[in-house]
Design a protein around this nucleic acid. Structure first.
Lengths: 343, 343
DNA sequence: ACTGGCACTCTGACTTTGTGAGTGCCAAGC
DNA sequence: GCTTGGCACTCACAAAGTCAGAGTGCCAGT
């Protein structure tokens, strides 16, 4: 027998989710018909609830209590029963003006995380735009001591990376200057990935006597490139919102708090950067860490219109207001993309 | 009548503090004599406790419960009744090896904060070394578009600051090169404070025609200097330790969590950078935010032997293990100072 | 000055009881 | 064949009562 959930059962599920999200208390048949005007009697709702429970969308914390949605219930709600809420004009305006005030990339990210935390009232996570898609703007070589150099790499999106090189022996200032100019002519404007291949040629262009020195520098630079392409910086904000998670501290809050300090975990939580138009929603057990089974993640990519530079999102209890939160995440991602495109 | 707390009363207070810190439960006269071997009877201890309560060092949560230390009690304990615990050789070794692995200043700070959180099992805060005491290593001017420049300031302690300048009209590449070299000859090696004054002269050295352009750049650079001298970056870690604060979430944890996101507040909490050898301990209401009346802060300066570059410390519940925590904070500060001195 | 003894207090843990929200099922009605 | 009202049943939770234990203050004796 193929079971099809008819329209009204879905209405009931929707009502249950909305009610539970609002009150955080198990919801029963009577209160349900009182608050939402589904034009049927409690008894009918009870039958539907029994069916929904059978299907695994809702559950009872204990016999003869109301029902609460299961992860599957939220999933169905998000996929089929709700539409992403759009923000009010005032909110949109607030976003643009707040993000517009940013002075550099770092500031954009910091403001974004703060903004996101504020309007969703959840913990916000923003990944810094990755270097992969950016290009080399400038490479600077600074002599600190005769046998120690500071390499500074400036990328097109305004990020600055630095590395110190210890040289096998003292280096001639002339050579440094030479190197600096050759590095820049060879690599300025190149994408990071191309730049790494160009680096090899630079060494060869030097006189054999100088090569050991140059090689040491180039190696470090290469390391910085690959390191930084791999490294994924992250900003986090709104941790104080964790206090609104409910009471079971050890189970709900601690894992999140711990995850927030492990950026590797956060990256996994956010998942692969999705297309800027697509929202990824991971509900409860769907996310890769079972300690966070009471936690949902809403994430999306941001960057240019078509391809995404990085990911941002929020982490919150499974019983969150999905439509609004999803709307906020999507809106913020769009505006950040816009800001980034302008600069 | 001048009241002098005799030796035994102090012993009792010490025992109370130690017991309460260990158990987090009000401690009574009987358990006290059981656990610590003060060679007197419970009744005697009771008399002493009455006196201590009279003096305001301990208090009862309710009639006929045990006593717990007041802020004043902790204060006396810290000042007079305890000695800062030194770390074990193994711990010291762990610290050096962990901090020694750092690759740059950022990494030092990040590792420090993680380390501090781990060994104290509290929330750790580390202020980045301030620029005030550092000097200009190099200034780089990069043309992004003809009317937009990127200024990069590299300081002696390896910090890099960047600013974008929008110019009134397009600038000649020759002038940029000229400016770059003049800026560097004028300012390299100067302390930040001196550098700001030198900046003024640089403008004057240019031909009157070029001055508007140069002035725009110099202004931004100046702004970057002062901004950055004022800005105090901060790293935070170990927030998950907040779960061990006890149960009164709203009162104990939330304010701290909120403070952690407000770096301005954190700076005030840490207080003025103290001499590296001195530990600042602020207990409960002694700290400047009354929402954090159940929280203590232990901080100290770090940097060179004699003068401090910045502050680091921890935030924890008033009922923490002061001797050990103070020892850890002091030790970490020393080792960081050492690492910084070497590089 | 310390101690043992004693009466007193109060919290916290445990039990009991009652109420109410909620359920499942059934038979009647549209 | 859904829908509905009715009804018996089930639990969680709150309120109230009970009890034991830890702790106190005070006093009189050594």
């Amino acid at each position: 027998m193929v079971r099809v959930l008819d329209e009204r059962k879905l209405d009931v599920l929707r009502a249950i989710v909305e009610d539970y999200v609002a009150t955080h208390e198990p919801v029963g048949s009577k209160t349900l018909v009182d608050r939402h005007n589904l034009g049927v009697s409690p008894a009918t709702v009870r039958n539907d609830m029994a069916a929904l429970e059978e299907e695994g969308y809702i559950t009872q914390p204990h016999t003869s209590a109301g029902r609460i949605p299961t992860d599957a219930g939220y999933r169905l709600f998000v996929d089929k029963l709700s539409t992403v809420k759009t923000l009010s004009a005032a909110e949109k305006k607030a976003i643009t003006s707040f993000l517009g005030g940013a002075v550099d990339l770092d500031d954009v990210v910091k403001r974004t995380v703060r903004l996101l935390a504020q309007i969703t009232r959840q913990v916000a996570i923003v990944q810094y735009p990755s270097l992969n898609r950016s290009s080399v703007r400038h490479i600077e070589v600074v002599t600190m001591t005769p046998s120690r150099l500071l390499l500074v790499l400036i990328t097109s999106n305004g990020r600055v990376e630095q590395r110190i090189v210890e040289l096998p022996h003292e280096i001639d200032e002339q050579l440094v200057a030479d190197l600096r100019s050759r590095l820049n002519t060879a690599m300025t404007g190149q994408r990071m990935t191309e730049a790494t291949t160009s680096l090899a040629n630079v060494t060869d262009s030097f006189a054999p006597a100088d090569r050991p020195q140059v090689a040491a520098i180039v190696t470090t630079l290469l390391e910085a490139f690959t390191d930084e392409m791999g490294e994924q910086r992250i900003a986090v904000g709104g941790a104080a919102n964790l206090t609104r998670y409910g009471d079971d501290f050890e189970r709900n809050v601690k894992p999140v708090l711990e995850a927030l300090e492990e950026h590797v975990i956060l990256l996994k939580l956010l998942g692969e950067a999705t297309h800027p138009q697509t929202l990824t929603v991971r509900i409860g057990h769907e996310n890769p860490f079972e300690e966070m089974a009471t936690t949902s993640v809403i994430a999306t990519g941001y960057g240019s219109k078509s391809e995404s530079l990085a990911t941002l999102g929020i982490v919150g209890p499974t019983h969150m207001d999905y439509p609004s939160t999803m709307g906020a995440v999507r809106a913020v991602a769009r505006y950040v993309s816009q800001i980034l495109a302008e600069s």
